[in-house]
Design a protein around this nucleic acid. Structure first.
Lengths: 316, 316
DNA sequence: ACAGTCCAATACTTCTTATCGATTTCGCCA
DNA sequence: TGGCGAAATCGATAAGAAGTATTGGACTGT
């Protein structure tokens, strides 16, 4: 039935919906009025749909017509984009995707992203640029980065934000720590000992969120040491500067263990981020085609929780 | 060029990409191998694209082919959905959209949504169901609501969340209050007097967020009165039970005024929410077609702010 | 009331082109 | 070397889009 639907007809519909006048729509697409009129009529009768109400002076869109016209418009717009992109890919003219990431973003997440990107844009390079969130967001704004993978929270009104991963936060300590014998820990008991954190200046919103989480739990936060990388954090813990909260999946150096926090579901979240005004040809496609695989893996790893779990969690 | 692109050809491409074998793809779409092969070949030469590398035993997708195939698949899938929806709309068989909303969601936001919905689904009813967030989320989970408009924060992993509006929070007081003479207020001065809040049980995540915001600002929160509606809040303020934080756009009853908070950019945010597994035929379309108009209006009202504005704000 | 205008639908012809069946070509494997 | 699988090629046929010319309604203005 709708196999013989042609993009030309979609254009007819789109233009007709815009002009509300078959004659003028026909002029716009350079065909005779009769052809356009006939095609749309046939389409309507084939599919049992009325797109336009024919009145004496012009047309009126029906509700169904509005939907089909909207579909036509989107499909045509996407087609143009896709064609441009396909040509760019074929000619190896896709500029490398400049992807910023903080060193606290788990390598697996970057890898997963890279894989997915490679699946769609085989042969197109990704240029990895490491930097803290402040750096990344500034460079995004300045057009020096196309996108970034960063810890949440990020302002969703300024940037397009797609959550990628969520892993529990655990307490990192030396293997010989007295607490290492316990299966899980209470935040109130050990809050005073957690003194190793990410650099607040490089992770301002993350740090703010952390303060909130501590306050919510009824404890205060003592920042004694600030680190710029996970490796630095682990080194500080090993050197007995204090305990730290880290991403559960982070590979641990020897001499360190992690223990979960009882009663809390604090998590480290990361998201894929770019300016709403896409600066790289691939970004619309990343949004469109990657979302499925991401949301699938998210669902698998984190089945539904309680009624109102915390909104956005943070940081290792 | 690509005007004569037909949906049939999209199917050819899609099936060929899946089977990687023209002969079998041709069987699937019930045409002769020669036809399919020829059509794809013509497509490729017309558009200067190579979709498949022809090898002795079957085909291999090129990068460009992957993109076109992905496009084809999406376009066809969307077409089916659109057709079903258009028919449902035409036959007035679209079940009413059961939309939950909290009484703290500004009426303008509901109206705007209703307008947009009506624009696309003319003649299809919206069934408004008022209830606090706990009620709405429970009913969403139970399938008794299709979607809701609620104050943020909401867990974006459990629900599909699309921010709709963001308006500043201001202090609501009596016209004859001594503070009414000031142009703006400092939160530290007046925190103790802000004692009228939304019911913490009905707005748990909102309340939690509020506590965080107060803590961040270095003040503690004293809940003396909890209200279930904006009208109740205003009544309490008028009856001298205390001050309240309300949405700046809320219509004020006589005898009341509002004053902004100095140095803070607290906001009341609302979002459109539904289960990720869409329960109503219209939901995919709402996501797809409404996003533009929403994000446009959001941008106009709230141009870019500082580097790291607060992530999610809340509540009146 | 009548001609003039605007717009969509219809009838019929022309021309394009998708499809088919048959055949060919190429590489693979026994 | 002779099947086998798969894609490309060819000529004939049939489907269907576009075009021209025309008809039919409804509004407009004199």
């Amino acid at each position: 039935m709708s196999d013989s639907l042609t993009f030309r007809l979609l254009k007819y519909i789109k233009e007709s919906a815009e002009t509300l006048n078959f004659t003028r729509a026909a002029e716009r697409v350079f065909v005779a009025q009769s052809s356009l009129s006939h095609q749309i009529g046939k389409f309507e009768s084939n599919l049992d749909l009325t797109l336009f109400e024919r009145t004496q002076n012009g047309l009126r869109l029906t509700a169904a017509g509005r939907m089909i016209a909207a579909y036509a418009e989107n499909t045509l717009k996407d087609w143009e984009q896709t064609l441009i992109m396909a040509h760019a890919v074929q000619r190896h003219q896709v500029p490398p995707l400049r992807l910023g990431f903080s060193s606290f973003v788990h390598a697996k997440v970057i890898e997963k992203f890279h894989e997915t990107y490679d699946g769609m844009f085989t042969g197109c390079a990704i240029q990895l640029i490491s930097g803290d969130p402040v750096f990344c967001l500034q460079h995004l704004d300045a057009g020096l980065l196309d996108c970034a993978i960063l810890p949440l929270p990020i302002d969703a009104n300024l940037y397009s934000v797609q959550p990628l991963s969520r892993t529990p936060l655990v307490v990192c300590m030396r293997t010989d720590d007295v607490l290492a014998e316990r299966a899980q820990l209470n935040i109130r008991e050990i809050a005073a000992r957690i003194t190793v954190f990410r650099d607040p200046e490089q992770y301002p919103s993350a740090h703010a969120r952390l303060i909130e989480m501590f306050t919510e739990a009824g404890v205060t936060l003592h920042v004694a040491c600030s680190a710029r990388t996970p490796a630095e954090i682990q080194w500080m813990v090993r050197e007995r500067y204090g305990l730290a909260l880290i991403d559960q999946l982070l590979p641990l150096e020897p001499g360190l263990v992690t223990r979960p926090l009882a009663g809390l579901s604090w998590t480290a979240d990361t998201a894929f981020i770019h300016l709403r005004k896409a600066g790289h040809v691939a970004l619309p496609f990343i949004e469109r085609f990657f979302e499925e695989s991401w949301s699938e893996s998210r669902k698998k790893k984190h089945p539904s929780k309680g009624e109102h779990p915390e909104q956005l969690q943070l940081l290792a």
